[in-house]
Design a protein around this nucleic acid. Sequence first.
DNA 1: TATGAATGAGACTTCATTCAT
DNA 2: GATGAATGAAGTCTCATTCAT
Lengths: 188, 188, 188, 188
Amino acid sequence: MRRDAVRNRAAIVEAARGALDEHGGTVDVREIARRAGVGMGTLYRHFPAKEDLIAEVLHEQFTIWSATIRTAAATADPWTALTDFFDQALRGCAKQHAIMDSVAAGWSRPSAEAVVLGEIIDELLARAAGLLRPGVTRDDLLLMLQSLSCAVRVTQQSGRPRDRTAWNRLVRISLDGLRATHSDPLPQ
Amino acid sequence: MRRDAVRNRAAIVEAARGALDEHGGTVDVREIARRAGVGMGTLYRHFPAKEDLIAEVLHEQFTIWSATIRTAAATADPWTALTDFFDQALRGCAKQHAIMDSVAAGWSRPSAEAVVLGEIIDELLARAAGLLRPGVTRDDLLLMLQSLSCAVRVTQQSGRPRDRTAWNRLVRISLDGLRATHSDPLPQ
Amino acid sequence: MRRDAVRNRAAIVEAARGALDEHGGTVDVREIARRAGVGMGTLYRHFPAKEDLIAEVLHEQFTIWSATIRTAAATADPWTALTDFFDQALRGCAKQHAIMDSVAAGWSRPSAEAVVLGEIIDELLARAAGLLRPGVTRDDLLLMLQSLSCAVRVTQQSGRPRDRTAWNRLVRISLDGLRATHSDPLPQ
Amino acid sequence: MRRDAVRNRAAIVEAARGALDEHGGTVDVREIARRAGVGMGTLYRHFPAKEDLIAEVLHEQFTIWSATIRTAAATADPWTALTDFFDQALRGCAKQHAIMDSVAAGWSRPSAEAVVLGEIIDELLARAAGLLRPGVTRDDLLLMLQSLSCAVRVTQQSGRPRDRTAWNRLVRISLDGLRATHSDPLPQ
DNA sequence: TATGAATGAGACTTCATTCAT
DNA sequence: GATGAATGAAGTCTCATTCAT
């Protein structure tokens, strides 16, 4: 691939990232092309459909994000690893709202993203085994993450975009609900 | 108001309810008119803009929903009242995904819906005071509800629409996180 | 015809008169029905099409108008009769812009209105014969009237609606151009 | 700008010119697109709103027209300049009825078009000063032009579109009314 | 008979995608 | 390979006219 083609592709993805975050999935592809400084033809050469471009943006974001949270999940203390994991994961969502959608989309038919997340979560579960209430599964944490990402999104809606307190409180509550203190069995 | 007008108005709202739930807010108004068995003019006579129709559907759903959860929140035992409240509220969301959006939309600037919910939650908080960890606020429960409604939505995505186990487990975990057992203060 | 039907018909015509003058020919028939205080069905019972209603309004206005100008044209002094005729005719146009349109519409295929006007003008021409330049015809005066009515309309456009000076000057100029002073033959 | 874009833009304007003249301002934009042989998107790429297209057509017509009448107004003999000016100006109106509307629209709040016309008229007035009755102003001639353009329009209505005699006679009469022969002061 | 709700063709405009330059 | 002009289906909404109540 020629060097300018590479540069164009990167510019398109970056433009799409910003545009998607500002306007959401209904953004006009022309807005993306304009931001990227390329013509429509160039955009469509790289991504045959708008959907493909969106998928690429998500994939890229997910890659960066998953690296971050994998690091956070590697903290020595198992419980801290769990809290750091949620904290970093949700900070990422705060910046790129679309990330979690790809995971959500893969709930019924597991996506590659969900698989990656699942692996990280499995690791966390294994390490924190003794600290958690019995019966907590990978899907529980995956769903909790999705759920909390919505809370992040809600609290970020224009008005007080920097307020992390609200969702931090909810994260604390939710994680406390996972502690071994709670010996009641979860619904099967 | 004439009897056929009443019937048509109801048919339009019902059609809109179904169409909005299936296709989301981008549904074509003609699809709604077709489902309702009326012409475009009839639809626009009752609702001068698409937005008004959507608002009406939400309002109607919210009214039914809030009555249900208010009843659930009136259960004798305070903790059961809390769990019933979440259970009924989320079952409603499971049927009508758009309900919670109106509450979410009112996070920064409180909507009428958010106010109604807030009152119910305040009542629950007052009654369950001794059973809850210190510092739990109305906003904590409101946000938790929003958050969990996303979990419901995710688990309902085409594939296994009837599976309530997944989100029921998450509700249990989250509510357990609210128990007085947890004496750590929440972030301010 | 029943008495209330007569009253309704009159109310419709009056409402249409006002509405047409305010909004022009593109006015919504519902606006007319609302002003008249009747339902659409009643309006359409009396006038099978919007066009018929407009025609009726014009006819009624024309009848009043033609009576006024016929009186003005009967002034003793022939030249004064001519000026009074134009003055009254154009004042009428100032109040009901649509009147002249019906005459204009009948230029190619003479309308009943044009015939009435023609008779008045013929009378004026006969009486003022010696005062006018040779060769002035009925059509000349008819067209002059139409032409000047446009001037009235233009000067009335929102801004300075009461200013009659501008078109009065033009009337004076135009009529002076008809005087016998000008012996040059007109183009045939 | 690409050559085909230029060609399309021109085709659209030309199509609009014809369509506006035939059907008036209520013409369907699709009719214009069809005539121009382009899609709706192309039309809207060049003119973001129907109104913009209409404005462009008027502007273009006015530009051609004003050049023509400016030339006519430059004839050596002052009185001939005046008659040529009216003759050319009204021939233009005969071809494009919408031209004069833009001037009319600017009567209360002077439009760019009215300013251009005013300058030409001022020049004519200055040169013909001695030949005109006292007190004739720019607005008198501007209004006369508007007025006569209506006469042109009326005589052109389907039936005998080529007959210039009728309005030529009226022009002659009106201009004769401007001659210095008439010493009566005009209404102030 | 009067009412006004219902009709539906058609108006303006947008935007994902294709293709001539 | 890049450009951005062109496409046209589809979207929301209006309004002259009809018809059930």
